[in-house]
Protein backbone atom coordinates (compact mmCIF):
# COMPACT_ATOMS: atom_id res chain seq x y z
CA UNK A 1 0.00 0.00 0.00
CA UNK A 2 1.17 3.51 -0.69
CA UNK A 3 2.45 5.45 2.33
CA UNK A 4 0.82 8.66 1.21
CA UNK A 5 -1.87 9.03 -1.42
CA UNK A 6 -3.02 12.41 -2.66
CA UNK A 7 -6.13 12.45 -4.86
CA UNK A 8 -7.48 15.42 -6.77
CA UNK A 9 -6.09 17.86 -4.23
CA UNK A 10 -7.07 21.49 -4.83
CA UNK A 11 -6.38 24.62 -2.84
CA UNK A 12 -6.78 28.25 -3.73
CA UNK A 13 -5.69 31.36 -1.90
CA UNK A 14 -8.04 34.12 -3.01
CA UNK A 15 -7.91 33.93 -6.79
CA UNK A 16 -4.54 32.18 -6.91
CA UNK A 17 -4.71 28.43 -7.47
CA UNK A 18 -1.92 26.86 -5.44
CA UNK A 19 -2.98 23.28 -6.18
CA UNK A 20 -5.25 22.33 -9.04
CA UNK A 21 -6.31 18.70 -8.86
CA UNK A 22 -3.05 17.05 -7.85
CA UNK A 23 -2.64 13.26 -7.75
CA UNK A 24 0.48 11.79 -6.19
CA UNK A 25 1.66 8.66 -4.39
CA UNK A 26 4.55 8.23 -1.98
CA UNK A 27 5.77 4.67 -1.40
CA UNK A 28 6.91 3.42 2.01
CA UNK A 29 10.53 4.26 2.77
CA UNK A 30 10.84 6.35 -0.35
CA UNK A 31 12.69 9.65 -0.75
CA UNK A 32 10.46 11.77 -2.97
CA UNK A 33 11.45 15.25 -4.10
CA UNK A 34 8.75 17.76 -4.97
CA UNK A 35 10.38 19.99 -7.52
CA UNK A 36 8.92 23.17 -8.88
CA UNK A 37 9.37 26.89 -9.22
CA UNK A 38 7.94 29.39 -6.77
CA UNK A 39 4.16 29.31 -6.89
CA UNK A 40 4.06 25.75 -8.21
CA UNK A 41 2.17 24.62 -5.10
CA UNK A 42 4.88 22.39 -3.65
CA UNK A 43 4.95 24.04 -0.21
CA UNK A 44 1.15 24.17 -0.14
CA UNK A 45 1.09 20.41 -0.61
CA UNK A 46 3.33 19.94 2.46
CA UNK A 47 1.16 22.28 4.54
CA UNK A 48 -1.98 20.42 3.51
CA UNK A 49 -0.45 17.06 4.44
CA UNK A 50 0.77 18.44 7.79
CA UNK A 51 -2.70 19.88 8.43
CA UNK A 52 -1.83 23.60 8.61
CA UNK A 53 -4.17 24.31 5.70
CA UNK A 54 -7.43 22.69 4.67
CA UNK A 55 -7.90 21.54 1.06
CA UNK A 56 -10.78 22.93 -1.03
CA UNK A 57 -11.17 19.54 -2.71
CA UNK A 58 -9.51 16.15 -2.83
CA UNK A 59 -8.29 13.62 -0.32
CA UNK A 60 -5.08 12.92 1.57
CA UNK A 61 -4.62 9.32 2.72
CA UNK A 62 -1.86 8.14 5.02
CA UNK A 63 -1.54 4.35 4.73
CA UNK A 64 -5.09 4.31 3.45
CA UNK A 65 -6.57 6.38 6.30
CA UNK A 66 -8.11 9.72 5.37
CA UNK A 67 -6.46 12.60 7.23
CA UNK A 68 -9.37 14.99 6.67
CA UNK A 69 -10.54 16.68 9.85
CA UNK A 70 -7.46 15.69 11.85
CA UNK A 71 -5.72 18.71 13.40
CA UNK A 72 -1.93 18.95 12.92
CA UNK A 73 -1.11 17.60 16.38
CA UNK A 74 -3.05 14.38 15.72
CA UNK A 75 -1.42 13.62 12.37
CA UNK A 76 1.30 10.98 12.46
CA UNK A 77 3.57 12.96 10.14
CA UNK A 78 6.46 15.24 11.06
CA UNK A 79 7.63 18.34 9.32
CA UNK A 80 10.97 20.04 9.11
CA UNK A 81 10.49 23.75 8.46
CA UNK A 82 12.49 25.83 6.04
CA UNK A 83 13.25 28.33 8.82
CA UNK A 84 13.89 25.30 11.11
CA UNK A 85 11.41 26.85 13.62
CA UNK A 86 13.55 25.83 16.61
CA UNK A 87 12.13 27.05 19.92
CA UNK A 88 14.49 29.87 20.94
CA UNK A 89 13.62 29.62 24.64
CA UNK A 90 14.44 25.91 24.88
CA UNK A 91 17.79 24.15 24.83
CA UNK A 92 18.75 21.83 21.99
CA UNK A 93 17.89 18.87 24.24
CA UNK A 94 14.46 20.28 25.12
CA UNK A 95 13.78 21.13 21.48
CA UNK A 96 14.38 17.53 20.46
CA UNK A 97 12.51 16.18 23.51
CA UNK A 98 9.46 18.39 22.83
CA UNK A 99 7.62 15.89 20.66
CA UNK A 100 8.37 12.93 22.95
CA UNK A 101 7.10 14.83 25.98
CA UNK A 102 3.85 15.62 24.17
CA UNK A 103 3.48 11.89 23.56
CA UNK A 104 3.95 11.19 27.25
CA UNK A 105 7.10 9.11 26.76
CA UNK A 106 8.72 8.31 30.12
CA UNK A 107 11.49 10.61 31.29
CA UNK A 108 14.30 8.05 31.11
CA UNK A 109 13.28 6.87 27.66
CA UNK A 110 12.98 10.47 26.45
CA UNK A 111 16.51 11.23 27.65
CA UNK A 112 17.85 8.13 25.96
CA UNK A 113 16.08 8.70 22.65
CA UNK A 114 17.08 12.37 22.52
CA UNK A 115 20.69 11.45 23.25
CA UNK A 116 20.63 8.83 20.49
CA UNK A 117 19.06 11.27 18.06
CA UNK A 118 21.65 13.95 18.80
CA UNK A 119 24.46 11.41 18.51
CA UNK A 120 23.11 10.38 15.11
CA UNK A 121 23.99 13.84 13.77
CA UNK A 122 27.08 14.39 15.92
CA UNK A 123 25.54 16.96 18.26
CA UNK A 124 25.61 14.93 21.50
CA UNK A 125 27.85 17.51 23.16
CA UNK A 126 25.62 20.48 22.38
CA UNK A 127 22.37 19.44 24.10
CA UNK A 128 22.63 22.24 26.65
CA UNK A 129 23.03 25.04 24.13
CA UNK A 130 20.29 27.35 22.94
CA UNK A 131 19.51 27.31 19.19
CA UNK A 132 20.90 30.82 18.71
CA UNK A 133 24.29 29.57 19.98
CA UNK A 134 24.56 27.10 17.10
CA UNK A 135 25.84 27.49 13.56
CA UNK A 136 23.45 27.26 10.63
CA UNK A 137 24.45 23.69 9.84
CA UNK A 138 24.02 22.61 13.47
CA UNK A 139 20.59 24.21 13.64
CA UNK A 140 19.59 22.37 10.47
CA UNK A 141 20.55 19.06 12.06
CA UNK A 142 18.69 19.83 15.30
CA UNK A 143 15.57 20.62 13.27
CA UNK A 144 15.99 17.36 11.39
CA UNK A 145 16.36 15.12 14.44
CA UNK A 146 13.60 16.99 16.28
CA UNK A 147 11.27 15.91 13.48
CA UNK A 148 12.71 12.38 13.33
CA UNK A 149 12.91 11.53 17.03
CA UNK A 150 9.21 10.63 17.11
CA UNK A 151 9.95 8.01 14.44
CA UNK A 152 7.31 9.22 11.99
CA UNK A 153 6.55 7.04 8.98
CA UNK A 154 6.45 10.15 6.84
CA UNK A 155 8.73 13.16 7.18
CA UNK A 156 7.96 16.34 5.29
CA UNK A 157 10.95 18.55 4.56
CA UNK A 158 10.44 22.11 3.33
CA UNK A 159 13.59 23.23 1.50
CA UNK A 160 15.81 21.55 4.12
CA UNK A 161 19.08 22.65 2.52
CA UNK A 162 18.12 26.09 1.19
CA UNK A 163 19.45 28.06 4.16
CA UNK A 164 22.89 26.41 4.11
CA UNK A 165 26.09 27.64 2.44
CA UNK A 166 26.82 26.05 -0.91
CA UNK A 167 29.79 24.18 0.57
CA UNK A 168 27.75 22.63 3.34
CA UNK A 169 24.79 21.80 1.15
CA UNK A 170 26.23 18.80 -0.65
CA UNK A 171 27.61 17.15 2.50
CA UNK A 172 24.35 17.75 4.38
CA UNK A 173 22.48 16.29 1.44
CA UNK A 174 24.46 13.05 1.76
CA UNK A 175 23.76 13.02 5.52
CA UNK A 176 20.07 13.51 4.84
CA UNK A 177 20.10 10.59 2.42
CA UNK A 178 21.97 8.36 4.91
CA UNK A 179 19.55 9.29 7.70
CA UNK A 180 16.60 8.49 5.47
CA UNK A 181 17.96 5.01 4.70
CA UNK A 182 18.76 4.43 8.35
CA UNK A 183 15.34 5.41 9.70
CA UNK A 184 13.37 3.86 6.85
CA UNK A 185 10.89 6.72 7.01
CA UNK A 186 9.32 8.09 3.85
CA UNK A 187 10.80 11.53 3.06
CA UNK A 188 8.94 14.11 1.01
CA UNK A 189 11.27 17.00 0.29
CA UNK A 190 10.21 20.27 -1.27
CA UNK A 191 12.92 21.95 -3.29
CA UNK A 192 13.34 24.40 -6.12
CA UNK A 193 16.88 23.18 -6.78
CA UNK A 194 16.93 20.56 -9.54
CA UNK A 195 20.47 19.40 -8.73
CA UNK A 196 19.41 18.70 -5.14
CA UNK A 197 16.36 16.74 -6.30
CA UNK A 198 18.38 14.73 -8.84
CA UNK A 199 21.08 13.91 -6.31
CA UNK A 200 18.95 12.89 -3.32
CA UNK A 201 15.58 11.56 -4.41
CA UNK A 202 14.44 8.06 -5.36
CA UNK A 203 11.73 9.71 -7.38
CA UNK A 204 11.06 13.28 -8.39
CA UNK A 205 7.63 14.82 -8.81
CA UNK A 206 7.78 17.97 -10.92
CA UNK A 207 4.93 20.38 -10.16
CA UNK A 208 3.82 23.04 -12.57
CA UNK A 209 1.05 25.51 -11.69
CA UNK A 210 -0.49 23.23 -9.07
CA UNK A 211 -0.48 20.09 -11.22
CA UNK A 212 1.84 17.14 -11.55
CA UNK A 213 3.91 17.58 -14.70
CA UNK A 214 5.85 14.33 -14.39
CA UNK A 215 6.86 11.86 -11.70
CA UNK A 216 9.61 9.27 -11.89
CA UNK A 217 13.18 8.32 -11.02
CA UNK A 218 15.72 11.14 -11.55
CA UNK A 219 17.45 9.52 -14.54
CA UNK A 220 14.14 8.92 -16.26
CA UNK A 221 13.01 12.49 -15.78
CA UNK A 222 16.35 13.80 -16.93
CA UNK A 223 16.72 11.54 -19.95
CA UNK A 224 13.08 11.36 -21.00
CA UNK A 225 11.27 14.50 -19.91
CA UNK A 226 7.59 14.32 -20.76
CA UNK A 227 6.86 18.00 -21.24
CA UNK A 228 8.60 21.18 -22.27
CA UNK A 229 8.38 22.42 -18.71
CA UNK A 230 10.18 19.38 -17.29
CA UNK A 231 12.77 19.50 -20.08
CA UNK A 232 13.57 23.15 -19.41
CA UNK A 233 13.35 22.90 -15.61
CA UNK A 234 15.62 19.85 -15.29
CA UNK A 235 18.98 20.60 -16.85
CA UNK A 236 17.73 23.44 -19.01
CA UNK A 237 17.29 21.43 -22.22
CA UNK A 238 16.91 23.01 -25.66
CA UNK A 239 13.37 22.63 -26.96
CA UNK A 240 12.93 22.64 -30.73
CA UNK A 241 9.52 22.63 -32.33
CA UNK A 242 8.53 21.80 -35.88
CA UNK A 243 6.38 19.81 -38.31
CA UNK A 244 7.08 16.19 -39.19
CA UNK A 245 7.98 15.92 -42.90
CA UNK A 246 6.94 13.16 -45.30
CA UNK A 247 10.10 11.12 -44.52
CA UNK A 248 9.42 11.22 -40.76
CA UNK A 249 12.07 13.83 -39.87
CA UNK A 250 11.08 16.89 -37.85
CA UNK A 251 11.93 20.19 -39.49
CA UNK A 252 12.66 22.69 -36.76
CA UNK A 253 14.79 25.84 -36.60
CA UNK A 254 16.14 25.12 -40.06
CA UNK A 255 17.47 21.64 -39.10
CA UNK A 256 16.27 18.18 -39.84
CA UNK A 257 15.79 16.15 -36.69
CA UNK A 258 15.75 12.39 -37.22
CA UNK A 259 14.25 10.69 -34.19
CA UNK A 260 14.96 7.02 -33.41
CA UNK A 261 11.29 6.23 -33.97
CA UNK A 262 9.43 7.66 -36.92
CA UNK A 263 6.54 10.05 -36.37
CA UNK A 264 3.37 10.58 -38.34
CA UNK A 265 3.89 13.16 -41.11
CA UNK A 266 2.18 16.50 -40.57
CA UNK A 267 2.30 16.28 -36.78
CA UNK A 268 3.61 19.32 -34.92
CA UNK A 269 6.19 18.10 -32.46
CA UNK A 270 8.39 19.59 -29.74
CA UNK A 271 11.71 17.86 -29.14
CA UNK A 272 14.12 18.22 -26.21
CA UNK A 273 17.86 18.19 -26.80
CA UNK A 274 20.24 18.40 -23.82
CA UNK A 275 23.18 20.81 -24.10
CA UNK A 276 25.67 18.09 -23.15
CA UNK A 277 24.45 15.77 -25.90
CA UNK A 278 25.46 18.24 -28.63
CA UNK A 279 29.01 17.95 -30.02
CA UNK A 280 31.16 20.36 -31.93
CA UNK A 281 32.08 18.89 -35.34
CA UNK A 282 35.03 19.69 -37.59
CA UNK A 283 33.96 20.69 -41.09
CA UNK A 284 30.37 20.82 -42.31
CA UNK A 285 27.42 19.59 -40.26
CA UNK A 286 25.56 16.43 -41.35
CA UNK A 287 22.37 16.77 -43.36
CA UNK A 288 20.26 15.44 -40.48
CA UNK A 289 20.79 15.79 -36.73
CA UNK A 290 23.23 18.60 -37.18
CA UNK A 291 23.28 22.35 -37.61
CA UNK A 292 25.57 25.18 -38.61
CA UNK A 293 25.59 28.27 -36.43
CA UNK A 294 27.57 31.13 -35.01
CA UNK A 295 29.06 31.15 -31.51
CA UNK A 296 27.29 33.98 -29.70
CA UNK A 297 28.41 33.69 -26.10
CA UNK A 298 30.46 31.56 -23.73
CA UNK A 299 30.21 30.99 -20.02
CA UNK A 300 32.85 29.03 -18.12
CA UNK A 301 31.33 26.46 -15.74
CA UNK A 302 34.48 24.85 -14.43
CA UNK A 303 33.68 21.37 -15.76
CA UNK A 304 32.43 22.68 -19.10
CA UNK A 305 31.89 25.74 -21.23
CA UNK A 306 28.25 26.67 -21.76
CA UNK A 307 28.04 28.04 -25.30
CA UNK A 308 25.17 29.88 -26.96
CA UNK A 309 25.09 29.04 -30.65
CA UNK A 310 22.78 31.05 -32.93
CA UNK A 311 21.24 29.08 -35.81
CA UNK A 312 20.50 30.79 -39.15
CA UNK A 313 16.83 31.29 -38.25
CA UNK A 314 17.74 33.03 -35.00
CA UNK A 315 17.11 30.13 -32.60
CA UNK A 316 19.77 29.89 -29.89
CA UNK A 317 20.98 26.48 -28.82
CA UNK A 318 22.72 25.89 -25.48
CA UNK A 319 25.70 23.65 -26.05
CA UNK A 320 27.99 22.24 -23.35
CA UNK A 321 31.58 22.05 -24.59
CA UNK A 322 34.22 20.01 -22.73
CA UNK A 323 36.36 22.27 -20.57
CA UNK A 324 39.60 20.52 -21.59
CA UNK A 325 39.71 21.91 -25.11
CA UNK A 326 39.97 25.60 -25.97
CA UNK A 327 36.56 26.85 -27.20
CA UNK A 328 36.21 28.50 -30.63
CA UNK A 329 36.39 32.27 -30.84
CA UNK A 330 33.26 34.29 -30.26
CA UNK A 331 31.53 35.08 -33.53
CA UNK A 332 33.14 32.20 -35.45
CA UNK A 333 31.00 29.72 -37.41
CA UNK A 334 30.58 26.29 -35.76
CA UNK A 335 29.15 22.95 -36.90
CA UNK A 336 27.04 20.95 -34.43
CA UNK A 337 25.87 17.37 -34.41
CA UNK A 338 24.02 14.96 -32.14
CA UNK A 339 22.84 11.38 -32.01
CA UNK A 340 19.26 10.44 -32.79
CA UNK A 341 18.93 9.01 -29.25
CA UNK A 342 19.59 12.48 -27.82
CA UNK A 343 16.27 13.71 -29.23
CA UNK A 344 13.32 13.30 -26.84
CA UNK A 345 9.84 13.99 -28.20
CA UNK A 346 7.72 15.96 -25.73
CA UNK A 347 4.04 15.55 -25.07
CA UNK A 348 3.15 19.10 -24.23
Amino acid sequence: MALLTVQGLAKRFGVARALDGLDLEVRPGEFLALLGGSGSGKSTLLRLVAGFEQPDAGRILLEGADLAGLPPHRRPVSMMFQSYALFPHLSVFDNVAYGLRREGVARAETAQRVAEALAMVGLEALGGRKPQQLSGGQRQRVALVRALVKRPRLLLLDEPLAALDAGLRERTGFELRALQRRTGAGFVMVTHDQAEALALADRIAVLEAGRLAQCGPPAELYERPATRFVARFLGAANVLEGRVAADGAVEAAGCRLLLPHGRAPGEILAVALRPERIRLLPGAPPAANGAAGVLRDLAYRGDAWMALVALPDGTELRVALPAGAAPPELGSPVALGWAAEALVPLAG
Binding site: A50, G51, F52, P71, P72, H73, R75, V77, S78, M79, F81, S83, A85, L86, F87, P88, Y98, G99, R102, E103, R146, A147, K150
Partner: peptide
Protein backbone atom coordinates in the same frame (compact mmCIF):
# COMPACT_ATOMS: atom_id res chain seq x y z
CA UNK B 1 5.80 36.51 16.52
CA UNK B 2 6.97 33.66 14.31
CA UNK B 3 3.93 31.52 13.61
CA UNK B 4 6.15 28.71 12.30
CA UNK B 5 7.16 28.02 15.92
CA UNK B 6 3.54 27.37 16.87
CA UNK B 7 3.05 25.22 13.79
CA UNK B 8 6.19 23.27 14.68
CA UNK B 9 4.83 22.70 18.20
CA UNK B 10 1.49 21.50 16.82
CA UNK B 11 3.31 19.28 14.35
CA UNK B 12 5.21 17.70 17.24
CA UNK B 13 1.93 16.79 18.91
CA UNK B 14 0.97 19.80 21.04
CA UNK B 15 -2.72 20.73 21.13
CA UNK B 16 -3.76 24.40 21.00
CA UNK B 17 -3.58 24.97 24.76
CA UNK B 18 -0.19 23.28 25.11
CA UNK B 19 1.12 25.30 22.15
Amino acid sequence: RDLALEEAAADLGAGPWVV
